[in-house]
Computed example of a mutant assay.
Amino acid sequence: MPLPGDGLIPAPAEVQTMAVTIPAPPEEVWPWLLQMGVDRAGLYSYTWLENGLLHLGVTNADRIHPEWQDLQVGDIIAFTPEGYPGGRSGPRVVDMESCRHLVLDLSPGGPPGTVTGTWQFVLHDAGDAGTRLLLRTRSGPGRPWGLRLMDFVLRPGYLVMDRAMLLGIKKRAGRDAQRKPPPSAQL
C-alpha cells in the first residue's frame, strides 16, 4: 500500500516494509519516535552491538523524555555521536505529521534536494488492538555506488536491527499502556 514518503523515490530500486502491532494508541507510540537518536533516547535496538562493535555510546531510554519531544522537519536523528570518526551523521526529517508519520531522508552526502533513501515510520490506528507501526525503507536508483554496495553487504544486519527497533518500541509503548488504568477507572 502507498505510505507517506513514497513519493520521494517514485521508482525505487529496493523496498522493505515491516510492521508490528503495539497495544497502545498512536499518541502513546509517537513520543518514542520523536526522541530517537544515539545522543537522545537511542534506537531501541541491540546496544551490545551498537556499543560493542560500533562504539556509539548508546543508552536506550525506558521512559518518555519531555526535553526530547521537539523534533522538527530539518532535524537529524543521529546515528553517530558528536566526535565520532567521520562526524555526527544520521537521517534528516523531511516530513512528519503528529501521531501519523515520520519520514526520514537516508541520503548522506547526496546532492541537495535529491533523496536516494528513506526511512518511513507510519502509525495506523488499529482500534482495540492499538497501533500498527510500519517501517518502510526505500532505496532509489540514484544512490551512490559506495552506499549501494554497503547496503547490499549490510542488509541482513539492517533488517535485524530494524526488527529489534520495532520490538523495542513495542515493548516500551506497550508497557506504558499497560500501566495506565482503563478509561472507566480514571473517572
Results as ranks from 00 to 15, higher is better:
1 M>V: 15
1 M>H: 14
10 P>C: 10
13 A>H: 11
13 A>G: 13
17 T>V: 15
19 A>Q: 15
20 V>R: 02
23 P>I: 14
23 P>R: 03
24 A>E: 01
25 P>M: 04
25 P>A: 15
26 P>Y: 13
32 W>F: 13
33 L>A: 10
38 V>P: 02
42 G>M: 01
45 S>T: 08
45 S>A: 05
50 E>F: 04
51 N>E: 03
57 G>I: 12
58 V>N: 00
60 N>K: 09
61 A>S: 14
66 P>Q: 09
68 W>G: 10
70 D>G: 09
72 Q>H: 13
73 V>K: 12
74 G>E: 08
83 G>W: 14
89 S>K: 06
91 P>R: 15
94 V>N: 07
97 E>A: 12
98 S>L: 12
100 R>W: 00
102 L>P: 01
105 D>R: 05
107 S>T: 15
110 G>W: 01
112 P>G: 06
113 G>S: 04
113 G>V: 12
128 D>P: 13
136 R>I: 06
143 R>W: 02
143 R>K: 09
147 L>P: 06
148 R>C: 11
149 L>Y: 11
152 F>P: 02
153 V>M: 06
153 V>P: 00
159 L>N: 14
160 V>D: 07
165 M>Q: 11
167 L>W: 14
180 K>N: 06
181 P>R: 15
182 P>A: 04
187 L>C: 01
